[in-house]
Design a protein around this nucleic acid. Structure first.
Length: 107
DNA sequence: CTATTGACGACAT
DNA sequence: CATGTCGCCAATA
């Protein structure tokens, strides 16, 4: 890998690489769903695993990944934190859901 | 190679 | 609209 984290030895699978790479394309103020990030339907769960292992902790913005229904989903460090991070990126959360989800999510 | 698991999704109740 | 069930995929034991 070239662009991703430098503090990584990378023994990542093709799938993982693709996911992390796509994640770097998520602009500030936008979010993406697990399913969409996967690139094909059904792999949403696998994405969660990828994020959970997440080798590039702060480097890779894993907090911009949310569920398809607009809820935050899970997070390795607590959902509160995730919301804070999102708010910092101009992504606001209301009632446990992403505000204007349909407008800011990437397809 | 099989079984288990998990930051999910769609559908039925 | 809230919960429950079953199905998906990839990684790990």
């Amino acid at each position: 890998m070239s662009n991703l984290s430098s503090t990584n030895s990378a023994k990542l699978s093709n799938f993982e690489k693709k996911v992390y790479l796509s994640l770097t394309k998520v602009q500030r103020g936008k979010v993406v769903t697990y399913a969409t990030l996967a690139g094909f339907p059904g792999a949403a769960r696998a994405i969660g695993n990828a994020m959970n292992k997440n080798p590039f902790a702060p480097t890779l913005l894993c907090h911009r990944v949310v569920k398809n229904d607009g809820s935050l989903g899970g997070f390795a460090h607590r959902t509160r934190r995730k919301m804070e991070l999102l708010r910092s990126g101009k992504v606001f959360v209301e009632n446990e859901k992403i505000a204007d989800f349909e407008k800011i999510k990437l397809k």
